[in-house]
Design a protein around this nucleic acid. Structure first.
Lengths: 166, 166
DNA sequence: CTCACTTTTGAAATATTATTGCGTACAGGG
DNA sequence: CCCTGTACGCAATAATATTTCAAAAGTGAG
């Protein structure tokens, strides 16, 4: 993908759609300063090129009964690639695990989990996670509250940075 | 908000829109098995009641030049509520910090950060985060790769759980 | 500087969707 | 059994999305 460049209008489109993914194309076009047809073409291109990976409604987990959010730091016994992948695949199959990131350092993975209540999470922890093959250690931390949960990319920094190079 | 109940159609709507936030109302209506007008009314109601907090395009950070993702575990010197809030407000002002969650246990906060490169993050770490008032300790872990990054709520578990109660 | 050639744009026309306005059906309470 | 509140869906209308196409703007060679 090298050689693909985004102009200021493309970046504005991405920023606007990140902030409001259901904005109409007419509104979007007006905000980025071009007419609707080229705006829509740009959006489609951004989608095809993978700059936009999808659109999602942000659903409130709490009001659906998912009262518990937990971060789990997981250490494995073997860090051989095959074993790492095996663990990742396990995570993909666990619905309670919403995110699984491989880390450097002492801990091998951090998982973001949700659950309806503590006991459901505890059951998952003991019956699934801790007892999974190759799992050496798990340290969990309950989330007390979310101070910030911003979607995606900090466009302000992107623009700063581009302004300097120019 | 107790007393508000969602029927199976509402839950299906939420699940569909979480998976594809730009689905047309016509398509959505057809998937959940009702006609367009009531479907749209339900969506609006779900938005007003806060079950849907917003819609966002998932923008690919990497292809925009944000190559680095880091988790930072932060401990504070004082956990007095005023000091916690002060730190949270600092985080809200830092664009590199995309998420800030308060935890129980040894660590007070976990931050998910992004940056164009290591040196940008290091500069933030030393000049902003570590040197912020009341920050006692910071331990960072670079993300090597994301094995799973699912949006929001596990609707399969929600349905399981509701099926049992019935 | 000018002539192709290429790319992107925007006005206009058309196709789809979203939204509104009712009349109807169904559920619970008196 | 009637009344009332709620949710539906058809039909009409308003707004958007999408296609078409000719013109404007940018590129590079000569």
């Amino acid at each position: 993908m090298p050689g693909v460049k985004l102009d200021p209008i493309d970046r504005k489109i991405l920023a606007e759609l990140q902030a409001d993914g259901r904005m109409t194309n007419v509104e979007l076009a007006s905000r980025v300063g071009i007419s609707a047809p080229p705006c829509l073409r740009r959006v489609r291109t951004l989608e095809e090129q993978g700059f936009i990976k999808g659109y999602h409604a942000a659903v409130d987990a709490r009001s659906l009964g998912f009262e518990v959010q937990v971060f789990a730091m997981v250490g494995l016994q073997s860090q051989a690639e095959a074993d790492l992948v095996a663990f990742e695949n396990l995570c993909k199959g666990w619905s309670l695990v919403r995110e699984c990131h491989m880390l450097n350092g002492e801990v091998d993975f951090v998982l973001k989990c949700v659950a309806p209540d503590l006991s459901t999470f505890q059951r998952f922890l003991t019956e699934s996670l801790t007892s999974a093959p190759n799992v050496a250690s798990v340290k969990t931390s309950l989330v007390i509250r979310d101070a910030k949960d911003a979607p995606g990319v900090p466009f302000d920094i992107l623009e700063e940075r581009l302004a300097q190079k120019a």
